[in-house]
Nucleic acid binder design. Structure first.
Length: 327
RNA sequence: GGACGGGUGGCGGAGCGGCCAAUCGCACCAGACUGUAAAUCUGGCGGACUGAGUCCUACGUGGGUUCAAAUCCUACCCCGUCCA
């Protein structure tokens, strides 16, 4: 098993594909945005086609390589870290059974971390609980929610900033559903490791993690170029299409960087140039957050994605994997 | 040529005698993160010294008034609008 992660635009996809072709790999995408159908240009989803074999479940094929967990949800459906881990675990098992190498690649740090470290089984989101909490926030403000959290779960309250509405809600939500403080569920709950049992632990031990890094200036330049490309690749048209399907402006898929600016542009609120500038800016900010996250990822090989061509990078990763296997 | 309005930190934009190294927003830097994570948040942000702090340089430029000036006066240089 191989992990390839890094900030957006660091070249993960190309390298992963190259590597997959080299070592009979299949890719499992760890990207919370590319899961959506209809949004392709704006999420930099690799170009591929669905192919259906003898079973009913098809596979998205990119450059001859099966590319999993991509292009399978409608824009108004939600995805989650837990769901990712569950599906990715299943997929990884299947791929290995077929004699392939799972290559988990993507920029959604949380997904990758949880997959590598294992997840505590937690209840999923509950829209009723959420809308109720959101209502409380509207009525009494965030400090109120924080107090509420402190009353039921002081440890979490200590850890979560009173302004961080999303995490406060999740913590309270988990408590409301399970009756146990979030912090305790997480701490005491048996971690369900996706790789436990028979050969699974071994699989993870042999796994190689690569973080593609790059000079900040270079990365930002690549982002700027990519945004221009996304726009000329049809990001606007696909937004129009999705809006036309009746997806509201605030549907999950549109939470992705960029689309909200495209929507503003379509409504004539901002100019084309301003939109492009803003999308690039948001993307740069996002990349920065990813870098911060990945810095903490343990047991990782840093590889400079800015130097050398794709082929050489893939070979490098294959070599790292080879070295690890010897040990 | 005349009448107004304006020139503030990388940008936008407050301040209009002392509480101003200068509200705030953006950019930028750093950080947090267990089910919306391309999300949601936090901190820093003129320079020097490791910090409470101390010093230096700063609100177009040069003079001046004042114990004290980004803030008042004055000359000049730019910019915008209007009148010629």
């Amino acid at each position: 098993m191989i992990f390839i992660f890094g900030p957006t635009c660091s070249g993960k996809t190309a390298v992963a594909l190259e590597l997959a072709n080299m070592i009979n790999g299949e890719i499992i995408s760890a990207d919370s945005r590319q899961v959506y159908r209809h949004l392709s240009a704006g999420t930099a989803k690799p170009e591929g086609k669905w192919r259906y074999g003898n079973c009913s479940c098809g596979a998205f094929i990119v450059d001859g390589v099966p590319y999993h967990l991509v292009d399978f949800l409608e824009p108004d459906e939600t995805f989650s870290a837990g769901e990712f881990v569950r599906r990715a675990t299943l997929l990884a098992g299947k791929i290995k059974k077929r004699g392939g190498v799972p290559i988990i690649t993507g920029g959604t740090g949380l997904y990758i971390r949880l997959f590598r470290n294992g997840v505590t089984p937690l209840p999923g989101r509950d829209e009723n609980v959420r809308s109720e909490l959101l209502g409380l926030e509207k009525k009494y403000g965030r400090p109120y929610l924080h107090k509420k959290l402190a009353a039921i779960d002081p440890v979490s309250a200590e850890r979560i900033h009173p302004n961080n509405i999303q995490r406060m809600i999740r913590a309270i939500e988990v408590h409301q559903i399970t009756g146990v403080p979030f912090s305790q569920v997480v701490q005491q709950g048996k971690i369900q490791h996706p790789h436990q049992g028979k050969n699974k632990m071994k699989g993870l031990k042999n796994a190689v993690a690569v973080c593609l890094s790059m000079d900040r200036e270079k990365l930002y330049k690549r982002i700027n170029n990519r945004v221009r490309q996304m726009l000329s690749n049809g990001m606007i048209d696909e937004t129009v299409a999705v809006v036309g399907m009746g997806s509201p402006d605030d549907c999950p898929a549109f939470k992705s960087v960029g689309y909200r600016h495209v929507i503003s542009y379509l409504k004539n609120k901002i100019s084309f140039n301003y939109m492009e500038e803003k999308i690039a800016q948001d993307t740069r900010n996002y990349a920065k957050r990813q870098i911060t996250w990945f810095k903490k990822e343990r047991d990782t090989n840093l590889v400079d994605g800015g130097s050398g061509n794709i082929r050489r990078l893939a070979e490098k990763i294959a070599a790292i994997r080879g070295d690890n296997r010897q040990v």
